[in-house]
């Protein structure tokens, strides 16, 4: 049983976690062309090497990120999501100036 270190709860059996997919930035949902949007939704890099992944500690519902080497399965580090997401994200409508309804 592999161990994963939750930034909040410390090292735990990996069965205490849910995998949340690879982290990659979402392209602008309005201005991206169809092909790029399809790449974002349906195609994944599946890279051999260090990737950043979402993980959730189930008992505390705590989401965080992990850098993992997909070749050796070594987890290089885990860190809080706020390291990447440190400010509020807003979306601007393409053509509706009054904003959200």
């Amino acid at each position: 049983m592999k161990l994963l270190t939750c930034p909040l709860n410390g090292p735990r059996n990996i069965s205490e976690f849910t995998y949340g997919g690879e982290y990659h930035p979402m392209p602008d949902p309005v201005h991206t062309d169809s092909r790029q949007w399809a790449e974002h939704v349906f195609f994944h890099d599946n890279a051999a090497g260090v990737v950043t992944e979402w993980w959730c500690h189930n008992a505390s519902s705590f989401w965080f990120l992990a850098e993992r080497n997909t070749i050796s399965d070594e987890v290089i580090r885990t860190f809080e999501a706020s390291e990447i997401f440190n400010q509020r994200i807003d979306f601007i409508a393409a053509s509706t100036p009054e904003g959200s309804s």
Partner: peptide, 19 residues
């Protein structure tokens, strides 16, 4: 619930989500 938390870990809206 997990999805809500994951999205707001990114959006950082001023809310609390509780199951």
């Amino acid at each position: 619930y997990q999805n809500m938390l994951k999205w707001n870990a990114q959006w950082r809206l001023d809310i609390d989500i509780a199951n």
